[in-house]
């Protein structure tokens, strides 16, 4: 089955990352790189998004589309990237998500 893992950053996590020294930061990025390399056979596609301050939202439906600055939900948790994976079942997808070395929340959705 195909699933999308949505990586969700929190304010807390962003702060921690910022507070890290250069070496620590590099180690954190390397851990992410290793995760992608180790699971390359299951990952069919992935994207890392630019920071949330670059987001623009368009709301359609009521008259003219309304364009606003910012993400569609203002909150402390923001989606920072996606990975599409091809695995046997939810348990395998869960196993991947559990081993994710970076941001603290991962949402798993099957691709319909």
């Amino acid at each position: 089955m195909k699933y999308v893992l949505m990586f969700v950053e929190t304010e807390q996590f962003a702060k921690e990352l910022e507070a890290m020294g250069e070496l620590e930061q590099r180690a954190a990025y390397e851990a992410v790189g290793r995760w992608f390399a180790e699971n390359a056979d299951k990952i069919t596609h992935h994207t890392h998004l630019a920071p949330v301050h670059t987001a623009t939202t368009v709301r359609l439906g009521q008259g003219e589309p309304v364009v606003t600055d910012g993400p569609f939900v203002e909150g402390k948790e923001v989606v920072s990237g996606f990975a599409e994976v091809e695995v046997a079942d939810l348990d395998e997808a869960l196993k991947l998500a559990r081993s994710w070395p970076a941001c603290p929340i991962v949402e798993i959705r099957p691709v319909s």
């Binding site: 089955m1 046997a88 079942d89 939810l90 348990d91 798993i108 099957p110 319909s112």
Partner: peptide
């Protein structure tokens, strides 16, 4: 059905 929850006994480590 839709999220692909498997029908099996989990492996030893889980």
């Amino acid at each position: 059905g839709e999220a692909g929850i498997p029908y099996r006994v989990p492996p030893q480590e889980e």
